[in-house]
Computed example of a mutant assay.
Amino acid sequence: MGLKRAPFQGVINILRFNWHFYVIAAVLLLFALGLQIIAPFYLQSILFWLALLGITTVIFTLLVSYYIYDYSSLYQLGWLPNLNDKKVLNINAGFDETSEIIRDDFPNIDLTICDFYDSEKHTEVSIERARLLYPPSSNTVKVNAQNLPFKDNTFSVVIAMFSAHEIRNTEERELFFKELKRVMKEDGQIFVTEHLRDSFNFIAYTIGFFHFYSRSNWLKIFKNAGLRLVKEGKTTPFVSTFILHKNGATN
């Protein structure tokens, strides 16, 4: 596919958006190493191994992130069908990395870009930083995730990549998917790409995996919204894409 991301773009963005975590980790590391100098002998070994574990965890997380966001085929969006001559909704939560790629790959697409970011609900500082560094494009439509400004049965394809998990309230997330179902044509498809709260993401991100939702949680959300899972795939062991149809659709 055509448009290429910059080398190390994914890892660099992670560092830029979440630099406070790495500053805290560095301070704790320096504190542990400094404490080791004055600590009793029996504690020195413990502090050393704790510091080594911390360094290893940070490095491993960044290596996994490089693998996911820079090395793998994730942003080739290979799960998407041919979108030329189709009316498509791409909906994000304040940070859009895919619309430019989609436009480049499918020049005849009828693409609508929406952003449901709400500073009162979505309070993560990383999103604020992402928006400052990558402001929404001028043709992005600001929307309410529970009340999309589109008629029923408007879009053939709906794409929600790394966005739906930012709706932290379960009821609101269900309403969001009910809205996606409403604006999607009867024979349309929804593509939802997310990290999962599973063993792979725990190994990669330790307690950070709590920011994600489990597969069973997503399946419950889809079912309650009246959507049917027709296919599930993984670009890497760390990222899943769910392909959804309306219940009753036969395609």
Rank of each mutant, 00 (worst) to 15 (best):
residue 109 I to K: 01
residue 66 Y to C: 08
residue 144 N to C: 05
residue 77 L to P: 01
residue 55 I to Y: 01
residue 225 A to H: 09
residue 161 M to S: 11
residue 242 F to D: 00
residue 233 G to M: 06
residue 127 I to W: 01
residue 128 E to Q: 14
residue 5 R to Y: 04
residue 50 L to S: 14
residue 67 Y to H: 12
residue 230 V to G: 02
residue 213 Y to H: 13
residue 100 E to F: 13
residue 236 T to V: 09
residue 237 P to Q: 03
residue 146 Q to G: 07
residue 99 S to R: 08
residue 203 I to C: 07
residue 45 S to Y: 13
residue 222 F to Q: 02
residue 117 Y to I: 07
residue 200 F to W: 13
residue 75 Y to L: 12
residue 28 L to N: 15
residue 118 D to M: 03
residue 219 L to R: 12
residue 162 F to L: 07
residue 87 K to P: 03
residue 186 E to T: 10
residue 104 D to A: 15
residue 118 D to K: 09
residue 96 D to S: 06
residue 47 L to A: 07
residue 182 R to D: 05
residue 108 N to I: 05
residue 184 M to G: 07
residue 114 C to M: 09
residue 109 I to L: 05
residue 146 Q to R: 15
residue 231 K to T: 06
residue 23 V to C: 12
residue 152 D to F: 00
residue 47 L to C: 07
residue 108 N to Q: 13
residue 181 K to F: 03
residue 40 P to N: 07
residue 200 F to N: 12
residue 28 L to I: 10
residue 82 N to P: 00
residue 156 S to D: 14
residue 34 G to K: 04
residue 6 A to N: 11
residue 129 R to N: 07
residue 121 K to Y: 08
residue 13 N to W: 04
residue 156 S to P: 01
residue 72 S to V: 05
residue 42 Y to W: 13
residue 206 T to K: 15
residue 9 Q to E: 15
residue 205 Y to R: 11
residue 79 W to Y: 14
residue 51 A to C: 13
residue 186 E to V: 13
residue 94 G to R: 01
residue 105 D to P: 00
residue 119 S to P: 08
residue 81 P to Q: 12
residue 122 H to K: 04
residue 121 K to S: 10
residue 167 I to P: 05
residue 131 R to V: 00
residue 114 C to R: 04
residue 101 I to H: 05
residue 146 Q to F: 05
residue 90 N to A: 12
residue 118 D to I: 01
residue 168 R to S: 08
residue 9 Q to T: 03
residue 104 D to F: 14
residue 173 R to C: 13
residue 230 V to H: 01
residue 133 L to V: 08
residue 140 T to S: 09
residue 160 A to I: 09
residue 63 L to W: 05
residue 110 D to L: 10
residue 15 L to Y: 04
residue 230 V to F: 04
residue 211 H to P: 00
residue 80 L to I: 12
residue 126 S to L: 03
residue 98 T to L: 05
residue 135 P to V: 03
residue 120 E to A: 11
residue 118 D to R: 03
residue 159 I to E: 00
residue 78 G to I: 06
residue 160 A to D: 06
residue 206 T to I: 12
residue 150 F to K: 01
residue 49 W to G: 02
residue 33 L to T: 08
residue 157 V to G: 03
residue 103 R to W: 06
residue 251 N to Y: 14
residue 35 L to V: 03
residue 226 G to Y: 02
residue 137 S to Y: 10
residue 11 V to P: 10
residue 223 K to L: 10
residue 15 L to I: 15
residue 89 L to I: 03
residue 153 N to T: 09
residue 205 Y to A: 06
residue 104 D to T: 11
residue 29 L to W: 14
residue 113 I to K: 15
residue 170 T to N: 07
residue 40 P to H: 06
residue 159 I to H: 00
residue 244 L to F: 09
residue 99 S to D: 06
residue 20 H to T: 06
residue 23 V to M: 14
residue 32 A to V: 00
residue 155 F to R: 03
residue 41 F to M: 09
residue 210 F to R: 11
residue 8 F to N: 12
residue 74 L to N: 02
residue 21 F to K: 15
residue 62 L to H: 08
residue 29 L to R: 01
residue 63 L to G: 03
residue 167 I to A: 09
residue 153 N to G: 07
residue 58 V to I: 14
residue 88 V to L: 12
residue 167 I to T: 04
residue 78 G to E: 15
residue 37 I to F: 14
residue 76 Q to P: 00
residue 172 E to V: 02
residue 208 G to Y: 04
residue 177 F to L: 12
residue 94 G to V: 03
residue 147 N to K: 15
residue 104 D to N: 12
